[in-house]
Design a binder for these strands. Structure first.
Lengths: 254, 254
DNA sequence: TAGATTGTTAATCGATTAACAATC
DNA sequence: TAGATTGTTAATCGATTAACAATC
């Protein structure tokens, strides 16, 4: 079955057609690296907005976002020309434009599957709701957990998935189950019409064409840090030394 | 002050010196993209190992890791030649070599700061301890939480940070506080000698040269999914159409 | 030897960055 | 007009990938 996703799409408009067909830059195909930074810029703009800063330069916004300003300007140029030369960017205007581009000006119903420790943390995470993500169900296959209150919802049976997805037109699912259950849960989500999955389980999911999976793996992040940490600690290991350092080390150990 | 990190480094050895100085490939400077995938390969190898599979081809391992096999072989080539042409890789041997390269054959004492929902989840996460990460302290600045048992530890005062870091020679810290506290916590960690930080707070941290920060941001991952989801839903939006699709849409709406 | 599979090459692709012309 | 800052260009850098020679 397919989900009711079509309700999100608009009908083709003449403006749209002429814009796409025009000789002007197509505004399409934003690079993945840029897409991944747009939410970072959005967050930085929200911070500036909260401080009631009306205008900022690319230099200031880049600093707030933790990137270099050339990269920021290049990224923004894929969206359009939303700045004013000699002046900078209007914080509210740019904030809206980026939010619209990402899609967080609309409402995204989300289901979370697997309500262990991590699922609890996700259910209580305020960063979701503040960005258009609305948790419509917390699902777990363990009957002992059904009915348990969590945030402003109750934990429900994973068997209710299809009903819930259809009822709320859910496009995004979050998997926070143990690794061994993740692929099954994923298959069920996909079968119900969910086409975007955020996977916290430490397993590789296989999905059909057209379904996006993003993975967050806590232990992998820590291992990447360990790799670099090991090399810092190894500053006195000869393996890691540059020629002059070797000379110094050899003298030292003599 | 500096931490006691030096205890981790070995003394320079003649083998080490000659290896570095030799004409052979330096084995150094593994690309970041490769480093980020090594833990993924390690996990895949552990899975194969658990299934008592002794040998695998690059094709098989790549499938288990969710990457293409050319990329896998290229990545492994930075570590050395651990495979056998015509045969494949010995699972246990490659597993050990990758673990050693990442640094997870050693013990990494870790502190977690900020024991809210997420901190609880992290404290209970089994994926850490199974990869050499040992949680030596759970710290929170809220006195009401001090002494609360969690996993096999008790929540302690953040003020004890320096003592703990020195005592256990902690190099890695995890920040799971609210955004407004993150930079302060980060500064304190750095001041104690922590040189690797995993940041779950939604804020940009500034750290001195030599300190690594990695960021995990749940809401950003979800926003990236939303961006792509929006474009899927917009399949009937003229903006997103290619030339032939525009023609079709125009006909359809006529 | 024949078949299989690695390790490496080289071409391609995408991302980053500095520099600066355009323009407020 | 002079100063500031964007948006864009072009050069550089790094990552990916297919293809295949090396070799088990």
């Amino acid at each position: 079955m397919t989900s009711g996703r079509s309700s999100r799409g608009g009908a083709p408009t003449t403006e749209g057609v002429s814009r796409t067909a025009s000789a002007k830059a197509p505004e399409r195909g934003i690079p993945e690296a840029t897409v991944a930074r747009l939410p970072v810029y959005l967050r930085a703009l929200i911070t500036l907005s909260d401080r009631e800063i009306a205008t900022c330069s690319s230099e200031e916004l880049a600093a707030a976002a933790g990137v270099n300003s050339a990269k920021l300007r290049k990224d923004l140029s894929y969206l359009g020309s939303y700045g004013t030369r000699g002046v900078g960017y209007d914080v509210e205007y740019l904030r809206y434009q980026i939010a619209r581009e990402i899609g967080v000006t609309q409402d995204w119903p989300v289901v979370i599957v697997g309500i262990g420790n991590l699922g609890h943390a996700l259910a209580n995470y305020s960063g979701f709701s503040s960005r258009g993500f609305r948790i419509v169900a917390l699902l777990d296959s363990d009957p002992a957990r059904h009915g348990e209150p969590l945030g402003d919802r109750f934990i429900r049976d994973f068997a209710d998935l299809e009903t819930i997805v259809r009822e709320h037109d859910v496009a995004i699912g979050v998997i926070a189950t143990p690794a061994h259950a993740a692929q099954d849960v994923c298959d069920r989500l996909v079968a119900c019409g969910v086409t975007s999955i955020l996977n916290f389980a430490p397993s590789v999911l296989s999905v059909p064409e057209g379904v996006d999976v993003r993975k967050v793996d806590l232990s992998i992040e820590l291992q990447i840090l360990a790799y670099h940490e090991q090399r810092k600690s190894a500053a006195y290991d000869a393996d890691a030394l540059t020629e002059p350092e070797i000379a110094a080390a050899v003298v030292e150990s003599a």
